[in-house]
Nucleic acid binder design. Sequence first.
DNA 1: CATGAATGAGACTTCATTCAT
DNA 2: CATGAATGAAGTCTCATTCAT
Lengths: 190, 190, 190, 190
Amino acid sequence: MSGSRERPLRADAARNRAKLLDVATEVFTTRGVDVPTEEIARAAGVGVGTLFRHFPTKEALLAAVMVRRLEAIAAGAADLAAGAEPAEAFFDCFRLVVDRSEGKNEFTQALAAAGVDVHASLQEPTTAIRAQLTDLLAGAQRAGAVRADLGLPELLALLVGTGATMEQLRDDPAARERIYEVVFDGLRPH
Amino acid sequence: MSGSRERPLRADAARNRAKLLDVATEVFTTRGVDVPTEEIARAAGVGVGTLFRHFPTKEALLAAVMVRRLEAIAAGAADLAAGAEPAEAFFDCFRLVVDRSEGKNEFTQALAAAGVDVHASLQEPTTAIRAQLTDLLAGAQRAGAVRADLGLPELLALLVGTGATMEQLRDDPAARERIYEVVFDGLRPH
Amino acid sequence: MSGSRERPLRADAARNRAKLLDVATEVFTTRGVDVPTEEIARAAGVGVGTLFRHFPTKEALLAAVMVRRLEAIAAGAADLAAGAEPAEAFFDCFRLVVDRSEGKNEFTQALAAAGVDVHASLQEPTTAIRAQLTDLLAGAQRAGAVRADLGLPELLALLVGTGATMEQLRDDPAARERIYEVVFDGLRPH
Amino acid sequence: MSGSRERPLRADAARNRAKLLDVATEVFTTRGVDVPTEEIARAAGVGVGTLFRHFPTKEALLAAVMVRRLEAIAAGAADLAAGAEPAEAFFDCFRLVVDRSEGKNEFTQALAAAGVDVHASLQEPTTAIRAQLTDLLAGAQRAGAVRADLGLPELLALLVGTGATMEQLRDDPAARERIYEVVFDGLRPH
DNA sequence: CATGAATGAGACTTCATTCAT
DNA sequence: CATGAATGAAGTCTCATTCAT
């Protein structure tokens, strides 16, 4: 699962990489993608050189941040899926993914703008989530809780879109709840 | 309301401004927001100076492009609203706005990243659409075609979000159609 | 004296030229030489084109402003010279020139920076002052009020330099007066 | 007093900074303040980026050049002051400052035009000279070689103004000498 | 392996000057 | 003759990336 990549990575190097990722996540999320690399390095307490040793380009850093978020989401989803009956698992997982997607769009776009094939470069880490969602969707459909004519692509698109919807309603929890009602109602058969 | 601005604008100036807007719309939409101003000027057949005379900053150009798109959408929406029964008018208009929203997110984000208060600077031109949507929504609710607990904010958020959903399914019209079914089903009472 | 140049100049054209000169004098003096030509034109109530019709380059405008000031100074000097005994006339005139030189340095330098041979382009209009100063100096020297070994070049240089000195003491009239004492004392024989 | 600033500065960085300062001094003095930064960088054998790393704005570079010149002047003045009797020390120092002031006005004005508070930003490095001049002046006055009613402000103004005077007589050493006689005579009591 | 100085292409913008209206 | 839109060279500054220390 968390297969070993390259060499084991020395202790301090690993610490630097982690700090960099933490800072980048924080900074990109709160201040946008245009923050200079140098600033991120400084905030992480390392030189730019170190940043570029770990992430050969800025895009690579961006991608790594995304991957990390996706992995976190996947972990959460795994817990939920393990739990209860199919329908509940599906809808709970939907909520989880959406709630954690905050700001994800900006990354995706920044990556795309940089000419990176997002689908390709994020393929592997996303696989876990994809697999889980496929299972959850199938289970919910088998249980008659979700329209049978929907596939994984529609589900993924809907997750992204609902995330975007929610971002517009950041300050109104009640409204967000109503949106969930609309979307979940729409997902059910008929 | 949509009153005349400043002076009538000389013939060639108007032509240049229009060309600039055309080119910018095209370029920003297809190649993203990071295209150099100089390239836009060249593509429009004018010098950079001319571009900056018409739009004092790049953001101003970006905003102008958005405004233009919104105005076009508003015009289309007006035609639909004039037409038929409330429910149909509402759903048709929803589709129209979503279909024309392609790529709009990127603009909004670019503007926001530049520190522009999008809501403020685009307020006026958006007002037309807002008003129409308010009417359409009210009409559809009165006709019992849409849940009564939804307000304009939710509608707007849903329009944005559905647009984002659709962008993920750019190449699959059938899937897009299924999304519309989901969302429209969800919007109906119960 | 005010010899006719070129054509007689139509009434409105003359008015424009005068307004332009007034505004330029005001603006250059208060806000420096880097003010855009367009702004000067606007302040004068004309288009840039008109400005450039009257003054083929910005330097030409700068030079014209200087000329005008010098002419004003010359006029004032003439009045004084006409008056009393040689020594008094000389020293009064010295004061007059210095007092009116405020900010003149900036112009001279701007012109020089633009590669204009100031001495050459201002030769003619300065001639009047030069002639007067030559006479005044000679008179004062004959009267034994000024060292005999000084020539016009030294006098001109001293006028410029004393102007610069005074600009440093803009806010201290008493100090300025002491400077005059120093310089005038120094000018007297022994 | 002339305490170390920030970090020790790496060897190559120090070399570049020095070269930049040398070139800038040379170029600004001979060709004026309007020389493009890029040209200065090229002449110093570095990229523009390096220039801007050392001096965040062009004004900063200008100011640094001035500071350097003032420091050089102060050093020379210190030597003189150490030497002989008060009167001689004073007048020699006056000459020194004036002779080294060549072109200094242009800098001051460029800085002022850029909205920099020259007095403030150059305060510290000037302090050394101020202190020395204060001492020299007091000494010369005590020795009865200079009018007692003059203060430091007048002296400084006179230094600037005499510099301006001398610049007009760049090519006539004999005339310059006569100016010194005039000014020094004027400075003596009576 | 870390550091941060150096690089230099390129971004945005200004402005003197020209020329169609 | 006046106007002001158009021009485009040039200027200052930023920032991802490289490389000497």
